[in-house]
């Protein structure tokens, strides 16, 4: 029974990972791509790890490592997305043509 639930978690995680990759290909600019990559890959990979935790039989050595990896992933992936997007903007990468507003560039005009 618990194996089946674990399998469902792994399957859902894989589905979200695939959607995240699809977003990475389809969306127009670096910021939108980061959105898809960060959100879908975080939940997808966490779900896979949680499925691993269930299938490995709960609090075994593998299960513990999976849980720790979830915590690190949730803390680290938004920070990485933040660093990449900030770096991209500072390096002068433009937003997509159909973007509506860019308050960050407005506020930074005087600085640079």
């Amino acid at each position: 029974m618990i194996d089946i639930i674990g399998m469902i978690f792994v399957g859902t995680g894989l589905a979200f990972d695939v959607l995240g990759c699809l977003g990475l290909v389809r969306l127009p600019d670096v910021y939108n791509r980061l959105q898809a990559a960060t959100k879908c890959v975080t939940l997808g990979t966490c779900s896979i790890l949680f499925g691993t935790f269930l299938m490995s039989g709960g609090f075994t050595p593998t299960g513990f490592k999976a849980l720790i990896a979830i915590v690190f992933l949730v803390l680290a992936s938004p920070v990485a997305a933040h660093a990449i997007s900030r770096g991209a903007h500072r390096a002068g990468i433009k937003l997509w043509d159909k973007s509506v507003v860019d308050s960050y560039a407005e506020d930074r005009e005087g600085e640079a």
Partner: peptide, 16 residues
């Protein structure tokens, strides 16, 4: 995100 990615016309309107 899944909805926006799968939708054929990509209903996005990005900005900062």
């Amino acid at each position: 995100v899944a909805y926006r990615v799968i939708h054929p016309s990509m209903p996005i309107k990005p900005g900062i």
